[in-house]
């Protein structure tokens, strides 16, 4: 895993990423492609937070859709029911997600392995039931309608292009934050937890606090994604934040490659686009989707990023010989 130790913040890389975003935004005209890219961006936000938790801290979560839902529902309720300014609602949504993450994380992160997975799963399910049953506030199973669109002053985000920029510059900022953390002292301590929690405790790493901090961070990113999703679609329903969504998030992280923020981007893109490609299979879509998941994990357990890179390197070595 020497490569991730070496991946210092590379200003050139981030400038390049910035340029790509700006260019793609300019070139893509069709509203449908803009929408696909926006959804990829939202999914990337979800995946990158979870990637920090799973890839760097080594803690699995099968309930992260709850934070996604908390972000979406908080902003929906505040803006549509109480006419609060959306950007204030964003702050409240993130703070609420953080508070809940602390309360839930404290007892849950004491667990490990499958038990941690189960604990987070249970918590995710409970929140999904809350979204569904607290119908006076959340609109219940039929969903919440009429979430207003975003704007700053006279700049409206209603058009696809502006929303594209909003989402992708959020992604860009989140990537920057993540890569700073990864390359800090805290980041190195996190990776030590991933390798061995006992060993890192022995050398004086406060593992519990660190794990909690990453958990909270990923919850905040998910809430941000929820905020962007809610104001984009303008409708939310509990079905979008269920157990399957949590599983999809984990899948994005694992397929893209753990311990790599760029892998999160790849995983989110693939998982958003795969169902679109699989439309051609119509009835066979589920079968193919399941097969793809299994095959990727069997052949490239470290995710596509690492897996394809390995193949590339191997073939190059062969060529050299």
């Amino acid at each position: 895993m020497c490569d991730m130790l070496l991946s210092r913040i590379n200003p050139i890389r981030f400038a390049f990423f910035f340029l790509v975003i700006a260019l793609v935004g300019l070139l893509v005209d069709n509203a449908y492609y803009q929408q696909v890219l926006i959804l990829i961006g939202i999914n990337t936000l979800l995946a990158v937070g979870l990637n920090m938790l799973m890839g760097y801290a080594g803690q699995i979560s099968l309930g992260h859709a709850a934070f996604y839902g908390i972000g979406a529902y908080t902003t929906a309720i505040l803006t549509a029911k109480y006419q609060i300014y959306p950007w204030i609602a964003l702050v409240i949504a993130i703070l609420l997600a953080v508070a809940i993450a602390v309360v839930v994380g404290l007892p849950t992160l004491k667990l490990s392995g499958y038990y941690l997975g189960m604990g987070t799963l249970g918590f995710g399910m409970i929140f999904n039931i809350i979204f569904r049953e607290w119908s006076s506030l959340t609109g219940g199973a039929s969903g919440f309608v009429g979430i207003p669109s975003l704007s700053i002053g006279s700049l409206s985000f209603e058009s696809g292009r502006n929303y594209f920029y909003l989402v992708w510059f959020s992604v860009w900022s989140v990537f920057l934050i993540c890569s700073r953390i990864i390359n800090s002292r805290a980041g190195r301590a996190l990776r030590s937890i991933h390798d061995s929690e006992n060993a890192s405790m022995a050398v004086g790493v406060d593992t519990m606090t660190l794990k909690l901090q990453v958990f909270v961070l990923s919850a905040a990113f998910s809430a941000l994604a929820g905020f962007l999703y809610a104001h984009y679609i303008s409708f939310i329903s509990p079905g979008s934040f269920d157990f399957l969504m949590s599983v999809r998030m984990v899948t994005m992280v694992v397929i893209g490659g753990m311990a790599s923020i760029w892998g999160a981007l790849l995983g989110a893109s693939l998982l958003t686009l795969l169902p679109e490609w699989l439309h051609a299979f119509s009835e066979f879509e589920m079968v193919v989707y399941g097969l793809v998941l299994m095959l990727v994990m069997i052949l490239m357990p470290q995710g596509l990023t690492r897996g394809i890179l390995d193949i590339y390197e191997r073939s190059r070595e062969k060529y050299r010989k």
């Binding site: 799973m54 984990v250 694992v254 066979f284 589920m286 357990p301």
Partner: peptide
């Protein structure tokens, strides 16, 4: 599976569950 880590196995079983559901449908 070349690297039977729990997380990999979890995803494989999740994949299998989607596959079986699709096949049964």
């Amino acid at each position: 599976v070349s690297k039977p880590q729990p997380i990999v196995l979890v995803i494989i079983t999740v994949g299998a569950s989607i596959f079986l559901r699709g096949a049964a449908m």
